[in-house]
Computed example of a mutant assay.
Amino acid sequence: MGGLLSYLAGEGRSNEHAEPHLVNGDSATFTLFGDSELAPSTALAVAKHLDEPRTAFGVEVNGGHVWHASLSLRAEEGQLTDEHWATIAEQFVDRMGFTEASGKAGCRWVAVRHGLSKAGNDHIHIAVNLVREDGTKASIHHDYSRAQSIARELEQEHGLQLLESRGSDMAMRGERPGEREIANRHGDDTLASVRLERSERAAAAASLDEGEFVRRLHQAGVLVRSRFAAD
């Protein structure tokens, strides 16, 4: 969580991050940090606060306890207000089952906004601690397809442009029966390939260079072998 929040509060790979700040989060986190610009020291304090349920209960999550997603507009759509993004973020995490709206203890989460992407897209990042306030783990079974479906709903409800690939299900991935059988035998809700992809994305988001990317993958338990082109 510290690596992810530090990246979101940093300058970005192309110095594109500007005025990073929270637009929403669980009530306790947003009350504590919602009025602060997300300076590096503040980002680490936010990360520590988000991690408290995991550290307090000593819970380990197979594949990592940090869940990260970004919600983005097309560049030609312009920008939304912080208040509008706050509404979208809360609806997104509610429908993903990360909050008390699920009927379970809530997860700690934040939505971070730090200006336009390098391509000019207005967007936010959502970071969730998958260990709930009571020490239980949030389910991320089929989280990729569920997130795509919820994003499509939000695009329609808020009058935003529909992503063509999402509307045609081009972005949806299927499960291989063999992968599901292996996961079931090990009692895992999440496929190994999905856990690997999540670890890669988290490492990429938090790393500033290739060496750090590889180190973070090793820390996540991923075996990495570098391959080099002939030149």
Rank of each mutant, 00 (worst) to 15 (best):
T99G: 02
L162F: 04
S36G: 01
L22F: 07
M172W: 14
K118A: 13
E153T: 15
A127P: 05
T87G: 07
E197C: 03
D94Q: 14
L191E: 00
W67C: 03
L4M: 15
E90H: 09
M96V: 00
R146D: 01
S226R: 15
R108F: 03
R185D: 09
H158K: 12
S226L: 15
E157P: 07
G106N: 13
R74I: 02
T190R: 12
L5I: 02
V128D: 04
E153D: 14
T87L: 09
E76S: 10
R166C: 02
S168Q: 11
E90W: 03
T42Q: 07
Q219N: 12
H218T: 02
F213S: 00
A206F: 07
A86R: 03
G115M: 10
D26K: 05
V93P: 00
H186F: 13
I88H: 06
R146M: 02
N62Q: 14
P20W: 08
A75Q: 13
A229F: 11
R185V: 02
G135E: 03
P53K: 02
R225M: 11
D122T: 07
M96E: 01
Y7L: 05
S199T: 00
I150W: 03
S6T: 15
A86Y: 04
A86S: 15
E200Q: 12
M96Q: 07
E181R: 15
